[in-house]
Design a protein around this nucleic acid. Structure first.
Lengths: 337, 337
DNA sequence: AGAATTATGCTCGTGTAGAGCATAACGTGC
DNA sequence: GCACGTTATGCTCTACACGAGCATAATTCT
């Protein structure tokens, strides 16, 4: 029996969409912590109690929120050195298995210091519903340009330029790909634009016994415009969850895990738009749903106050049999050259 | 510092394609083991030596094969109870972080008992290049029908029927989806058709203190037709790797990690066919490559002995900038109602 | 009643992909 | 040298998915 100085944690990105806002559940750190940032709900994996990782996640989610969630999907396992600052002082290596958890909207938070937050307050460049976010032109583009220019050699410069183009490209024929959310966060981290990158730079230099270069005002104000930081690499995990969820929308009917049993097609569209971070064409969205056959009318209608009442629909679970690929197509705005 | 009775292993699914055969690298168990099945190369994660999980995998791959691999991608983390039979006798809980590793074809195995195996000898129902595999009609379909019929209640029966239809469905409008490889394996496991399911049934019953129901001859011969079993749940990991690789082909240019620098378009096609397990339309495949702009001609040609010599091409790395989505489209044979 | 608002139905144009015919460039056997 | 098989490459026809927008239906508000 081998005992490794490794601690295994389970972290959950719990998602719900209410009022067209995609929310993630975070916990506030206890008052006696010296860190201030919020964190994803997590807990240690206990092999004695948890017969599987999934069940471990469900257990911890129940502790944090009181919820018995249905949809749980493993995201990624993180194990980089110095993810946890405690490691610098001889703490064990922290391995985190991150999970994506989807919850219908009518969620009530019970338990401790848990709060629902708009996930775009942590990834503001991902929300294009009101058009191209101003933060891209004002902070990200210039910041990334400096980063590209500061490359040591031509090869590195080319690689960086390519990555920037792929992630934030707005040239001819370039379409924004909502699924690249993780790549975008990692780019901003490497370029030293987000708050965690600055924090970790200091930690790393301290670990190497050097005097940390101070964080200057421009860096700090830039980072502030790029949203709030989270504990450890929780924001990276959040970005990974967003990317996975967006990708999955296109080929699996996962949206319905976030909706009540009965819904109007427009409600469904609003939820998808919130997740994808882009507006969709109403009529085409309806057409796609109908010809995929993944929803069926209940016969009832729902009045919203004004305008024609919308028909209520429900998810057809049997639909998965008909077509292997069922899902919500992501928008690919035709190049407007 | 918390010490958990948990052992963290890194396992690698190392893939190469030679002579139109997709191969996976396996290690033979040492002679003093009581188990006979081959296993994926793996090793314990050592936080003292490995600064990240990726680097740990590279390290172990080097030990097992002598290779310095380029493409490494995390697949999934497995942590179910009783994955490792040693756990029954008080051994630690085994957590395995599985990785997909791609290697160009000209690989020479050095080191220990490592052998390249055709991965379809473990998943014979996944290779449709010579048409629908006979094993599906002869073993799988009847076996799954029995499983569906043996359901306790109508609801379970409906769920099972749906899963069978999705995974192996050949009804109207149903297309075979190469990406569902993992779902197919898991279905066969749950239905008790593959060898590991029989093995684990005995283990589970023994763990619960019951007298294990014997494995009858029909079960044994069925399982034998469904390919060779591997150690632990390594075959599930292999299925997961296959599914991930097939899925990734469609939106990322990963095939080129398995090819030499220069190749003919037909060689490229053969590799993709080997991975997807299906034949492709030659002309359409070429057209797709050209209009995606992911390859460029070198100007040289290669004679195969007979027939017109083919032009040599190389991968255009810059191509990723042009279109966010670059990859090899998977075939979707049009419904032949 | 009429305007505003929301839901729903339908069409048009374009791009993509499945399928197959036609031609080009090489070997082999006579 | 010539017919033939074989492989590579170019092109067309067609069905379908999807972006975009017009038109109509069913409500509420004034």
């Amino acid at each position: 029996m081998v005992l490794l100085p490794t601690s295994v944690a389970l972290a959950a990105v719990i998602i719900a969409v209410t009022d067209e806002v995609p929310r993630v559940l975070l916990v506030r750190p206890s008052a006696d912590q010296d860190t201030e940032a919020d964190a994803l709900p997590s807990g240690e994996f206990d092999p004695a109690e948890h017969s599987s990782l999934d069940r471990g996640v469900r257990g911890w989610v129940k502790v944090h929120t009181g919820l018995s969630v249905r949809y749980v999907e493993q995201l990624y396992t993180f194990g980089n050195r110095y993810r946890d600052a405690a490691e610098l002082h001889g703490g064990p290596r922290l391995l985190t298995v991150a999970y994506l958890v989807l919850s219908p909207e009518h969620v009530v938070t019970s338990g401790e210091q848990a709060v629902w937050r708009d996930w775009y307050s942590y990834l503001p460049w991902e929300d294009w519903r009101e058009g191209r976010p101003a933060v891209i032109d004002e902070v990200i583009q210039p910041g990334l340009e400096r980063w590209v220019k500061s490359s040591a050699d031509a090869a590195l410069r080319a690689t960086r330029e390519e990555r920037v183009g792929l992630c934030f490209g707005c040239g001819k024929g370039a379409k924004r790909d909502p699924v690249l959310a993780l790549e975008r966060y990692e780019l901003l981290y490497e370029a030293g634009l987000v708050a965690e990158a600055l924090r970790d730079r200091v930690l790393r230099e301290r670990a190497e016994g050097r005097t940390p270069a101070p964080i200057d005002d421009m860096e700090r104000s830039q980072a502030a415009r790029l949203g709030t930081g989270l504990m450890r690499d929780d924001r990276r995990i959040l970005a990974a969850a967003l990317a996975r969820l967006r990708g999955k929308l296109a080929y699996r009917p996962v949206v319905f895990e976030l909706l009540p049993a009965d819904f109007t097609l427009f409600q469904l569209q609003r939820v998808v738009e919130a997740l994808v971070g882009a507006r969709l064409h109403k009529q085409n969205f309806r057409r796609m749903l109908m010809q995929a056959g993944i929803v069926e009318a209940t016969g009832q209608t729902q009045a919203t106050g004004r305008g024609r009442p919308a028909e209520l629909y429900r998810f057809r679970r049997e639909a998965t049999r008909v077509r292997a690929v069922v899902g919500i197509g992501l928008p690919t705005t035709r190049a407007v050259d």
